Amino acid sequence: MASIFSKIVAGEIPCHKIAENDDFLAFLDVFPCAKGHTLVIPKKEVDYIFDVDEETYMGLMAFARQIEPAIKKAIPCKRIGVAVIGLEVPHTHVHLIPMNSMADMNFNSKLKLSQDELIEIAERIRSYI
């Protein structure tokens, strides 16, 4: 059964897309820890990040690195935190989270943003890519 992320890649489920190429996709987390919380995924579905082949792993990190400056410009913050949890969705993904303190990466405390807010945040981030 395809993961929710594979369904997003296939266009079966909408997302607030930040960037995309042939192999990777970045989109806003709809249950973010902080405004601008972005997920970066390989389009190829592999559950565990360390089961991803070397080329995909390095490509995923390079793609995330391309997205980071746009998030930081769009969402003023001290840093962009990076996390790989791997338990929420059985599809490798990297969390890029704008943060001013460690509390901003609390996965037990999620923001509730409207669709309009998510659209505006995605547009702001894309404007810096």
Rank of each mutant, 00 (worst) to 15 (best):
L118S: 08
A83D: 04
C77Y: 10
R65N: 15
H91E: 07
E45F: 00
S3P: 06
S3A: 04
P32Y: 06
L25M: 09
T56C: 10
S114W: 03
V46Q: 09
A74H: 10
I125C: 03
S114R: 07
L39C: 04
T38P: 08
T56W: 08
S127P: 03
K78Q: 14
M99A: 11
K73Y: 09
F107W: 06
Y57L: 15
G86Y: 10
L96K: 03
I4L: 11
L87K: 12
V82L: 14
H37N: 14
K43L: 13
F24Q: 05
C77I: 11
C33R: 10
G86W: 09
I97R: 01
L60N: 01
I41L: 00
D47W: 06
F24W: 01
H37G: 13
V89G: 08
E12I: 08
H16S: 04
K17W: 10
K73P: 13
D51F: 15
C33E: 11
V40I: 13
N100C: 08
K72V: 10
I125M: 07
A34D: 04
F5E: 00
D22K: 13
I67C: 09
G59M: 05
L28A: 08
S3M: 04
I75V: 15
P98R: 03
D23P: 05
E88G: 14
D53W: 11
G86M: 07
I41W: 05
K112A: 12
K72A: 15
I97Y: 07
A83H: 05
F107L: 14
S114F: 05
L111I: 09
K112G: 04
F31L: 11
K73W: 07
H93D: 05
F31D: 04
K78Y: 09
I97K: 01
E12Y: 04
F31I: 03
D47I: 10
E123A: 15
P90Y: 10
T56N: 06
D47N: 13
P90W: 07
G36W: 12
S109N: 15
V30W: 00
T56K: 04
F27C: 05
Q115Y: 12
K7Y: 01
D104H: 08
G36E: 09
R126K: 15
V9F: 01
D47S: 14
I13Q: 05
D23M: 02
M105D: 00
I85E: 06
T38D: 08
Y48L: 13
A26I: 11
S6C: 00
A64R: 04
S6P: 02
G36T: 07
G59K: 03
I121Y: 08
F27E: 00
N106S: 11
K7D: 06
Q66N: 13
S3Q: 02
N108I: 01
A74W: 06
C15I: 11
S127A: 12
I97P: 06
L87R: 07
L39H: 01
A74C: 09
D53L: 12
T38I: 09
V40R: 03
